[in-house]
């Protein structure tokens, strides 16, 4: 009697690692969810911070943003948001850009934009935090 069980050339090791054909597993999907939940929590902190700081005279706005709790929350938000938006736009690019060269360029531009925004925001948060030590 021949063995009629469905056969696969997939190795046991590959099955255990669970990374699938794309070799990434659920990493992209999972990271989008983790950052989404972080964004909900940090997003409301952001709204409260911006609602209290925006439009205030410069010294007052600096005092709010340079408060250690505010600065840390803003920095965490920047990291979580820029990571989340990079993942999201990557999906949009992969859905609509079919030319391999264009897709590569678009994905690169996506990563560069996200990192640029993160870099500018984090630099600004650090610089504003240091202003707290100076007499304003």
């Amino acid at each position: 009697m021949a063995d009629t069980k469905p056969r696969s050339i997939r190795t046991d090791r590959s099955r255990v690692r669970g990374l699938g054909a794309a070799h990434h597993g659920v990493e992209h999907w999972w990271a989008a969810r983790v950052t989404a939940i972080a964004n909900i929590l940090l997003g409301f902190c952001f709204i409260i911070i911006m609602a209290s700081a925006a439009g205030r005279p410069w010294p007052e706005a600096v005092l709010i943003v340079s408060h250690p709790v505010v600065a840390v929350l803003l920095a965490l938000l920047v990291v979580s948001v820029t990571y989340h938006m990079r993942l999201g736009l990557q999906v949009v690019i992969e859905d609509y850009v079919h030319d391999e060269g264009l897709k590569l360029a678009a994905n690169l531009a996506n990563t560069f934009f996200a990192v640029l925004i993160a870099g500018i925001c984090l630099f600004a948060i650090v610089k504003v935090s240091l202003l707290r030590a100076l007499p304003l």
Binding site: V81, M85, G88, V92, I117, F123, A124, L131
Partner: peptide, 24 residues
């Protein structure tokens, strides 16, 4: 998807505000 894309580019506004605050 549309709001996600708008928010993506909208982060530039947050970066501009923070950078201005840091600049003086």
């Amino acid at each position: 998807r549309a709001t996600g894309c708008a928010l993506y580019f909208g982060t530039a506004l947050v970066a501009i505000w923070l950078l201005a605050l840091a600049s003086g």
